[in-house]
Nucleic acid binder design. Structure first.
Lengths: 285, 285
DNA sequence: ATTAATTAATGCGCAAATCGCATTAATCAT
DNA sequence: ATGATTAATGCGATTTGCGCATTAATTAAT
């Protein structure tokens, strides 16, 4: 049984005229006639009552006309969907990202994704920096935006952009400008910073900033999540150093003081990624 | 696209082994390999990732395996049902019958029908005798059980059985035996009889019965429906003459007095009936 | 009643597809 | 390094499918 036979049958069942139907199907009357004969033989069914003059459906033929048509449509819809899977315009992509980009860069990116690939589902996760590589390699994540410079043979890496660091201080804090950091004494100030593990690029960059202003933070809270950090700053619990993009949403009670120090953002993915969907998404970045 | 290709694909998608699958499908490995290739080419899809050593599904292949299988099953179920329609084990038959056979003969017959053809639906109607032929010819009815002897060129007729007439009298009526009909005077008795149109066999037969007992009913109610007639008799509104089978259900308040007069039952259907279902049902009678 | 027109089936020849056999090439296990 | 496994492929034989032309049946028209 061929899909062609079935579609021919359905068309003929509607037209009830061999010659006209064969013309519409871009074939000859003889071919159509024999296709239908073959179908009837194979199924052991008489689909049409034919005279030399008229063609009409049998009861069984009527039934099959009604019930095959939606099936064939479904069949075609299914293969069409499979084709979308294959060319990567359908599926799910898991992305991990630092909290700071969720205000501007990530939404911009996601709106481009859903514009180009409306059927694609994106799973967003914020991972700690030390899990990023592992989750990519284990296929738990597909794409990682990261502030950190990882070097791994299995991963590809590109720098996405650069932005400046900013101090985040409470609105009421006596430090209000960048100059205040140079002049004022900061010995008693608490700092709220991400986990400080030497050898990791992000921590190193923050240290550079602090060092430039002669800050040696002795007391601080520790958090890797921008939203948490800023909430603590707003409550006057300390000063933090964050990417300036963390200031995009209005954060009540927090003053951002931009520094000239720069912070890159990287994106990582598996080398030789085979999934066409993920390849497509990466091309969008 | 062939149904064979699809079933081959599904089997291979389960086995993930060309040689074994081809063996199960009673064909050769080369044939199967090329079938799958042809399918992939036609659809523009890569269904399997093959190495010389291993076969595994692509994402698109996985999707199609999951979604094609139920479709194919439905397709087969559909043709199977169509085959039932063709051989007449599925469909609807409209039957008209006199009320009196609905107690014994008709239920017996219907239980044989639903035993042999469990999927067949039967529509039961009680028509007046003068509509029976018309409705058969107009395809409003398919089979007619009738007490009447119609002669029509387009119809076939067989006698189904013969039963006796019986008088139906109220329980309290002074007439209690057949002898009472010979001896008692019945001049003032009301009779409840079907429409009395001369020339119709059933009416004639009843007249014969009445004549034999020297009854000349002058006053009577008229009804063609057994259940109505008996209800009137039970209320003491008159005497009736009915087929003895009308006594099968317990009819409170009615006494049946069997006579030796016989009454045939006929069955009618269209000559050269084409519908295989109706032909099958008629064969059951 | 005869003729013409319509229309589905069919015989025939050719082209294309399919199949099975045997072989090849890649991969895995030992 | 060797042998075993396994999917792809070249090749020849067969089958299938198509188009053309014709046939046969039926309807419409004269």
């Amino acid at each position: 049984m061929t899909s062609q036979q079935i579609t021919s049958f359905i068309r003929l069942a509607k037209e009830l005229h061999f010659w006209r139907t064969s013309y519409e199907l871009n074939t000859t009357q003889s071919a159509l006639s024999r296709q239908i004969q073959a179908l009837e033989n194979e199924l052991g069914l008489v689909l049409f009552k034919r005279t030399k003059r008229k063609v009409e459906l049998t009861d069984a033929g009527k039934y099959l006309k009604d019930h095959w048509e939606p099936l064939i449509e479904q069949l075609e819809a299914t293969t069409a969907y499979a084709r979308k899977i294959q060319n990567g315009s359908v599926g799910t992509v898991a992305i991990t990202h630092p909290g700071s980009i969720s205000y501007k860069l990530l939404p911009d990116f996601l709106s481009r994704v859903s514009e180009q690939y409306p059927l694609v589902k994106v799973e967003l996760v914020q991972l700690k920096y030390d899990q990023e590589v592992e989750f990519l390699i284990n296929f738990k994540m597909d794409i990682a935006f990261s502030r950190y410079l990882h070097s791994n043979e299995l991963l590809e890496c590109r720098q996405v952009n650069v932005e400046n660091f900013a101090f985040a201080v409470s609105e009421n804090h006596f430090i209000k400008t960048l100059d205040d950091f140079r002049t004022a004494s900061l010995d008693n100030q608490k700092f709220i910073l991400p986990a400080h593990e030497p050898g990791y690029s992000y921590a190193d960059l923050i240290n550079q900033v602090l060092a430039h202003y002669n800050i040696k933070p002795s007391l601080y809270y520790e958090s890797d999540y921008a939203s948490t950090v800023l909430a603590l700053v707003a409550r006057g619990l300390g000063i933090s150093v964050v990417p300036i993009s963390a200031s995009y949403p209005f954060v009540p009670g927090v003053r951002f003081i931009e520094t000239p120090f720069e912070l890159p953002l990287y994106v990582y993915w598996r080398k030789n990624e085979e999934n066409p969907l993920i390849k497509n998404i990466i091309l969008l970045i």
